[in-house]
Design a protein around this nucleic acid. Structure first.
Length: 328
DNA sequence: AACTATGGCAACCGCATATAC
DNA sequence: AGTATATGCGGTTGCCATAGT
């Protein structure tokens, strides 16, 4: 038995709002506020609407200072960066764009910006299991890294991987294996540069007293089965000189490559580069996109989100990916 | 002109979380 | 502490306008 519906669907009006309904709702809220109870509000003002519908209409359309359409290049870029860092947390992204609603940004991303930035991704050679198909009963990784079993990775995650590579002009996601790589030249990744440093996310896990396991962290990021080789499964820093570490890296590369390109032809690319995907070639030829107008330092500034937490973009990324190879 | 495909967007749905009791 | 209810959020749907044939 499910929970009780918030309103009687048979008796409430649905579909587009009329100007009269808008006027009623706007006038009431501007004078009295929402009263802290959206469910009761429509009855108070004689609207045959569900409270949730009223809330949505107010937040997305009627409230003051809402901007619709006409996204600027700067907004495009910020959305792109934030999406790459935190994924589809539209409310957090919207909080960084005054006057924009999460719904607006979500629609804009899905219908236009995504196509503009990512083009059309080539189909993977094998079917990827989507979030909805993850076995929620066990809620554990369906496969370990490098396994031939099915992987669980979302479309959003793949998009973010592409965006990240694009943002850096970096087509070898494993360049952290090369200590002289440009990936190390970012201030955030210069720390602990010797002896296979653990970075950001990995170090934080090891330093924390959190009871959340690495596996759980990766689970929550929908990156089941795509675990950084930098961490051993027992939560202890991996021994990079061991043969098991090498095979872990190789498996990781193979998995990543297949997810991104649909094949594993770019195996064993520790010292080489991954081929640039066709859709990224097209994007990178577009000189109108200036990804770093003020240099990396500005990008490295923390974002303050509406929950009061300062997010470092690279930290958000690492938390979601368990990777340290992107050098953001 | 008629039909079909596609894009854009507002609104809805259901789940997760927060809050009240 | 446990339960019920409200709110917030992200994913999805469906309608309308426009482009293409």
């Amino acid at each position: 038995m499910g929970r009780a519906p918030c309103c009687d669907k048979a008796s409430v009006k649905r579909g587009p709002w009329s100007p009269e309904e808008d006027a009623k709702l706007k006038a009431y809220i501007e004078e009295h506020g929402t009263g802290g109870n959206w469910i009761a509000l429509p009855q108070k003002i004689g609207l045959k609407r569900c409270g949730k519908s009223c809330r949505l209409r107010w937040l997305n359309y009627l409230r003051p200072n809402i901007k619709h359409g006409g996204f600027t290049e700067g907004e495009d870029e910020l959305i792109c960066r934030l999406y790459a860092s935190i994924g589809s947390r539209w409310s957090i992204i919207a909080a960084q764009l005054p006057g924009r609603t999460d719904n607006d940004i979500k629609n804009y991303w899905n219908t236009r910006l995504k196509k503009k930035l990512l083009g059309k991704r080539p189909q993977p050679s094998r079917r990827l299991i989507q979030n909805s198909e993850i076995n929620t009963e066990s809620n554990k990784p369906a496969a370990s890294l490098g396994s031939t079993s099915s992987q669980a990775i979302s479309t959003s995650t793949l998009e973010r991987m592409q965006l990240l590579m694009q943002l850096q002009g970096l087509y070898n996601p494993f360049s952290y294996l090369d200590m002289n790589s440009q990936a190390w030249q970012n201030p955030y990744t210069l720390q602990n540069k010797t002896n296979y440093p653990m970075q950001g996310f990995e170090q934080e896990i090891l330093n924390s007293n959190s009871t959340t396991s690495i596996e759980e962290s990766l689970d929550s990021a929908n990156l089941i089965g795509l675990q950084s080789p930098m961490l051993a499964s027992d939560g202890v820093s991996a021994d990079n000189s061991s043969s098991s570490f090498s095979s872990s890296v190789a498996g990781f590369q193979s998995t990543f490559c297949e997810l991104l390109y649909g094949n594993n032809s770019c195996n064993n690319t520790q010292e080489g580069n991954f081929p640039e995907p066709d859709n990224l070639k097209e994007i990178n030829q577009d000189e109108s996109i200036n990804w770093w107008p003020n240099g990396l330092d500005e990008y490295a500034s923390p974002f303050t989100c509406d929950n009061g937490v300062n997010y470092q973009p690279d930290m958000m990324l690492l938390q979601d990916y368990g990777l340290s190879g992107y050098g953001l």
